[in-house]
Design a protein around this nucleic acid. Structure first.
Length: 591
RNA sequence: CGGGAUGUAGCUCAGCUUGGCUAGAGCGUCCGGUUUGGGUCCGGAAGGCCGCAGGUUCGAAUCCUGUCAUCCCGACCA
């Protein structure tokens, strides 16, 4: 394989494009891999396509090894199947919709669950054909509110999406693990230092879901992990319930005046000024209970107020809130809500008024009352007294008040505990893969059923498994570059070696030509800069920008049979007899 | 959707505050010469409804209003 730059479709730019912010975006455009078409939409030039094809090649190999069969669907799909599963509406503005000339609705697929399900329904007629895994590599479309960071969050992006079909939970688990293993092999081959985290499975009606995250600052997901190996997306992190505490020695609740304490901070100040903590330490925000009033609306439009209690040192995490109320719309309570419920005194909300519990379905207010998992039997709290400028201390959960249930929506912090008791750290990550047990939701909606070996009608259970191909390409560029340009790993570089012929001396070009032929004959992919009349500086600059892992310069010493070889990643440069370049390269490439 | 910034040559930008005559630079492109191990140098040339619409003015890239677009932060992102 030989590419001659003298006759190649590319153009390097000396300056960063004005609309690029992140390194991968700047470099891929500057080096002539990509051009912007529209926000979050890119044209692919030959160099970019070659890298993309190499990444896809690795995926194809591992999909085949996992027993998945390749198919290909159109990106343009009709509305009806998405109507049947509810996604035509649920997907909202992120779905690209369009009409044909007959005014029929179409969409540009954001993922292909419906299409795959219907194809399997069409083709598979017996349980004996299951389990089955099929996949495609296809462009996906999502009308992101704000595309950003070049390829990292585009509106068109290439994705490998696989779907598994089985009749039993065991078959689903088996297919899931096969894909999960394939993902590990793919990411290992790419040298990506991924973390597998538990993900939220609730919203799609599935049971088990894991994300492959790359721990990078630029990532948009927050996840937690501990030394014990526990790892979860914050959305899926579960706070271990606190242990019940003995409270025999705790005195009865005491109300105290607390003027001008609208915030937790001012309340803690007042506690420290006026009261001694029973344990002799300072009062802390975590001794207090913060009450948040939410309005929860279900799909039928039924609206209900809910009061949530979390420790005063925590805030509500909006993503965790959404997961906790999946399927409902949640908004802050309005002034009108407070007006309707005089027992909710803003800033002084508490479960108890005058010694009697008021919050809770079974209590006077009738408002559902949920508490953080840290609010365990016997824990002692300071809370509002349901009257302006009065708080209560020594409120014991399980003695003085109780809740309708537990809710886990407080934010997560470094030092919190994992379910296994280990200490977690939080980090940012970029999602590069996702494996998901969908269960029977799609099969049910689209009528994918088969007779089992007992002649009983069974609904098929499905999994879906995605890898962001173009996002991985961008991530690889983020991870592998220096201030001069890209530095691809050899297994995804457009070519193995960038061969530069410099000098006006004809002999250098001839020697370079001979070397190129020998390398090609040996199966090396060669990008050959044979452009005439270009100064060496220009060629060196392009060689470094384009990012082949190895550069061979045949120039000044060509007449003596000497070339210079560069290892871009290590920065090493050495002079070698031209005759030895091939074996040097083979050693570097591990061939 | 909220906040911020920016739209001038193929690219990256200056000019706008304080309106004025043929609208500038660098890079790139084309022509001639020069140079050949770090984006050579010299000379010449092509290339711009100054995002769009309206307004103010004798006169608008510059001031005002509207509008569209792009980028950044946030919200959003099965």
């Amino acid at each position: 394989m030989l590419i001659r730059l003298s006759n190649f479709f590319f153009k390097t730019l000396r300056e960063d494009p004005a609309d690029a912010e992140v390194a991968s975006h700047k470099l891929l455009v500057r080096a002539g891999y990509l051009r912007r078409q529209a926000p979050g939409v890119f044209a692919w030039l030959p160099l970019g396509l070659r890298v993309k094809a190499k990444i896809e090649g690795i995926i194809h190999e591992e999909m085949a090894a996992a027993g998945a069969h390749e198919v290909h669907f159109p990106a343009l799909l009709p509305r009806e199947p998405y109507e049947a599963t509810g996604r035509w509406d649920e997907y909202g503005d992120a779905l690209f919709r369009l009409k044909d000339r007959h005014k029929a609705d179409y969409l540009l697929a954001p993922t292909h669950e419906e299409a795959f399900t219907l194809l399997v329904k069409d083709i598979v007629t017996s349980y004996k054909e299951l389990p089955l895994s099929i996949y495609q590599i296809q462009d996906k479309y999502r009308d992101e509110a704000r595309p950003r960071a070049g390829l990292l969050r585009g509106r068109e992006f290439t994705m490998k999406d696989a779907y598994s079909f089985g009749l039993t939970d065991e078959q689903l688990e088996q297919s899931y693990l096969a894909q999960r293993d394939a993902y590990e092999r793919i990411f290992n081959r790419l040298g990506l230092d991924y973390v597998i985290v538990a993900a939220d499975a609730g919203a799609m009606g599935g049971s088990r879901s894991e994300e492959f995250l790359l721990p990078v600052e630029i990532g948009e997901d927050t996840f937690v992990r501990s030394d014990s190996g526990y790892a979860a997306n914050v959305e899926a992190y579960v706070t271990p319930p606190a242990d019940p505490q003995p409270y025999d020695g705790v005195g009865a609740p005491v109300e105290f005046d607390s003027p001008e304490t609208p915030t937790i901070e001012t309340l803690v100040d007042l506690l420290n000024r006026e009261f001694e903590h029973p344990e002799g330490r300072d009062w802390q925000a975590s001794d207090t209970l913060k009450h948040v009033v939410l309005a929860v609306t279900d799909q039928a439009g039924e609206r209900e107020l809910v009061v949530v209690a979390i420790p005063g040192d925590r805030a509500v995490d909006e993503k965790r809130l959404e997961v906790a109320f999946a399927g409902y719309e949640v908004t802050p309570a309005t002034p009108a809500d407070f007006a309707k419920h005089p027992e909710l005194v803003a800033g002084y909300i508490g479960p108890v008024l005058d010694g009697a519990q008021i919050l809770g379905l079974e209590h006077k207010s009738g408002i559902r009352y949920l508490v953080d998992p840290r609010v365990a039997e016997g824990t002692v709290w300071v809370s509002g007294a349901s009257r302006a400028e009065v708080h209560t201390r020594s409120l014991v959960y399980g003695r003085d008040f109780s809740a309708d249930g537990v809710i886990d929506i407080a934010n997560v912090r470094d030092g919190d505990l994992a379910p296994d008791g280990s200490v977690i750290q939080t980090a940012r990550g970029m999602e590069i893969g996702h494996v998901f047990q969908l269960g029977r939701k799609y099969a049910e909606a689209l009528g994918l059923q088969l007779l089992d070996e007992n002649g009983k009608q069974q609904t098929v259970t499905m999994g879906s498994y995605g890898i962001g191909v173009t996002r991985i390409l961008a991530v690889m560029a983020e991870l592998h570059h220096d201030d001069r340009g890209l530095i691809w790993p050899a297994n995804i570089a457009p070519c193995h070696v960038h061969l530069v012929a410099t000098g006006k001396d004809q002999i250098a070009l001839e020697r370079a030509e001979e070397l190129a032929s020998r390398l090609v004959a040996d199966g090396v992919e060669v990008l050959f800069d044979d452009r005439p009349k270009l100064s060496p500086g220009v060629k060196f600059g392009d060689a470094e920008l384009l990012g082949m892992p190895y550069v061979v310069v045949v120039g000044r010493d060509a007449a003596e049979g000497i070339a210079e070889v560069w290892d871009r990643a290590s920065g090493e440069r050495e002079k070698l007899p031209i005759a030895e370049v091939n074996s040097w390269l083979n050693a570097k490439l591990g061939r």
